[in-house]
């Protein structure tokens, strides 16, 4: 049933901004997101948590002001990062992840998650595991398309985005659009777990390339 089990070309550049503590830009096909990470830094008293760091995610759309949709995605990205970043090691501090959408050509949330993870890696923050975002589109014949473009997203019947951790390959985050059966869900999870391995290999390659250069 899997017609198109390949991901689009992805590319990543780390440490490209000078002011943030960590930065990364992540490209998946024509979708591109720029991430800047500040922290651990001073935190506003009202947001201070006594036993862990306060994690904040700011998602800037390409055009216009952030709306309800962005708030929803911010919460998803923040909760995903909170699950892997060891915030208890930096109590009473703030970690801010700023994501700027550069271009959106499908699978935006997955790309945001990937950019955030690469940024956190560049900032050198202690993490339990890595995570990656994978989007699956289900078409009307029941086929699964990984990492769909915006055109494929529009033509699809359902769209699922997962975040998968690198240690146990378990599912950290799920969001979905459209309706689908339980079997289709399980198939999508299995497919995205396979795709996640490719992504983690890419993470490894791009980090080793960065360190072998300098």
């Amino acid at each position: 049933m899997e017609r198109d089990c390949c991901l689009r070309v992805f590319a990543c550049e780390q440490n490209l901004l000078s002011r943030p503590d960590g930065s990364a830009s992540f490209l998946q096909g024509d979708t591109s997101v720029l991430a800047g990470i500040y922290g651990p830094a001073e935190v506003k008293v009202s947001k201070e948590i006594f036993d862990k760091a306060t994690l904040e995610v700011i998602l800037k759309p390409k055009i216009g002001l952030p709306a309800v949709q962005e708030k929803n995605q911010e919460q998803i990205i923040r909760n995903t990062c909170e699950a892997v970043v060891l915030t208890t090691l930096h109590p009473r501090t703030s970690i801010t992840i700023v994501l700027q959408v550069v271009s959106d050509a499908g699978s935006l949330l997955a790309c945001c998650l990937n950019a955030a993870c690469m940024g956190l890696l560049d900032a050198g923050l202690p993490m339990k595991s890595l995570f990656c975002g994978v989007t699956c589109a289900l078409d009307f014949e029941g086929g699964i398309t990984l990492d769909p473009t915006d055109k494929q997203e529009k033509e699809s019947r359902a769209l699922l985005t997962f975040a998968i951790d690198s240690v146990e390959k378990k599912v950290l985050t799920i969001t979905s659009k459209g309706s689908y059966s339980i079997e289709e869900l399980q198939q999508c999870i299995a497919t995205s777990q396979k795709a996640a391995e490719k992504l983690f290999q890419f993470y490894r390659d791009s980090v080793s390339r960065k360190y072998s250069k300098s």
Partner: peptide
Amino acid sequence: DDRLCVLRKPGGSAISAEKLQ
């Protein structure tokens, strides 16, 4: 019809496919 309309798991502990089932 036992179809899923929304599945929302915003981060938090990772779970396996069996647990989800």
